[in-house]
Each structure stands twice: as structure tokens, then as C-alpha cells.
Amino acid sequence: MSRPAASLLSRFFFAQPATGAASGAARWCSAALVGGVLVACGWVLLRCSGLRWDWEAVGAYWQLFLSGWRTTVGVSLAALLLSTLLGAGLALAQRSDFLPLRYLAKCWIELIRGTPLLVQIYVLFYIVADAVQLENRALAGVLILSVFSGAYLAEVFRAGIESVGRSQLESALAIGLTRAQTYRHVILPQALRSVLPSLAGQFVSLIKDSSLLSVIGLNEFTQSARNVASYTYSNFESYLLLAVGYLLLTLPISIWTRRMEQRFRYET
């Protein structure tokens, strides 16, 4: 390759090899390239498949989409909070000196992680919720999702706690911190940094997994899209909207955790 061409390429499409930093021009050009290629590919594929768009039929049901999306947002957010609390509790329980608590947490985690969510939804809704006469489907959905996601989060948190070195715990002990203070000032800030990427992954999964709640008759986003598709025979349009609706929820989580990672960044 000629030298001017090589320098042009490196100017517009490459980050600095040593630092990983990239100029504004390089970032925009590269983003435009990737975006352009993706759109072009999509366009060519659609043309070749001979699909005809029909947004009008689907558009008539926008309210149905919106209410389904709202339900998904509400259920997911509530389950996100509750599962974080449950996960933290399970992670601590696994490290408890009280053995029955430790074994209970381990049982919970292994049972939940080892079985399909669909089975858990059926069992928890039609047996457990029925037994305690919990009839609110949205609330049941939140609880089921939290039980499920909490088990995964517990393992994420446990890995984070265990990533904090022994010498750090020793140091905390030596300066006279109590156990609770050690968690707060030493373990948590360091563990959070190492678990953020897996935490983001788990949160994103949780949002998508909420789609399975349609089997207990909860009219969440996926169920709405399915309904509209069957009313209008516009499968493709409905599911494309569905994908966009989930991305609207999951992308902010990814972006937010990247930001947090930057904030907590320190070298060791």
C-alpha cells in the first residue's frame, strides 16, 4: 500500500495503538462506515426477500404497543430493584457464619440457575402464587423475575466480593473497621468496579426475560406485539417495533454502566 493511503487510513479509521485513544474525525468516520454498511446490508436483504412494508395496519394499534411497553418497563424496573436487593442478600447469606442460611442461599441459587425460567414461572405462579392467593399478575411477575434474576446476581456479587484481596480485608481489620464498615468502605467500592460489566449483562437479560411473563397472561410488550401481529398479519413490522422497544430500554443500561465503569476506574 502507498504511504499516503496508509496515513489516510490510520487518520480516519484507527485508534492510537499504544493508548487506544482516537481523534474525533476517526471516531465519526468509523461510526459512519459501520452504520452505512449495516444499513446497506439490511436494505439489500430486504429487497432480495421481496417483503412489502405495511406500517399502517400496525400503526393503528400503537396504543396497544405503548401500554405493553409501559407494563414491561414497570415490571422490569421493579424486578431490577428487587432482584438487586435479593441478590445482595443471597450473596451475603452465602458468606454467613450461620450454616442453615448459607445452605438455603446455595439451594436457591442452584435450583434457580439450573432450571428453565419458563418452568419457574409456571410453578411459582400456578402453585405458589395460587397457594398464597396472589392474583395480581404484574406483582406476581415482578416477584418471579426477581427470584430468578436474584439468583444470578447473587453469583455476580459473590464473585465481586471475592475479587477483593485478603490483604485489603486484613488492612480494614487492622485499622479497626467493623464487619459492616469493611463491606461499606472497602469491599463494596472495589467489588462494584469489577462486577459492573456482568451486572449490566444481567440487567439487560432481565428486561428481555420479562417477555416470558406473557405465559401467565400478563399483557407486556412481547404479548402486545404478538397480538398485533395476529390481528394484522404484519409479523415483521410488529416484531421490528418490538426489537426497537427493547433496545430503548437496554441501550441506556449499557451506556450507563460504561459511564459508571469510567467513574470507578483506578489502577491497581
Binding site: S167, Q168, E170, S171, A174, I175, G176, L177, Q181, H185, V186, P189, Q190, R193, F264, Y266, E267, T268
Partner: peptide, 28 residues
Amino acid sequence: RTGVVFQGFNLFPHLSALENITLPLTAV
């Protein structure tokens, strides 16, 4: 009531030099 200095320093990596010193003062 005892000050301990370890072979491997054992400072807290997520805290600044000053915060490493002030943490025991405020928390303990």
C-alpha cells in the same frame, strides 16, 4: 488503638492518599 504498617503497604486502591488516612479517622 494500634497502628500497623504491613510489608505490602496494603493501602486501599480506590481511595486517594489523603482518603486512605482519613477513613480510619472518620469511620472509626
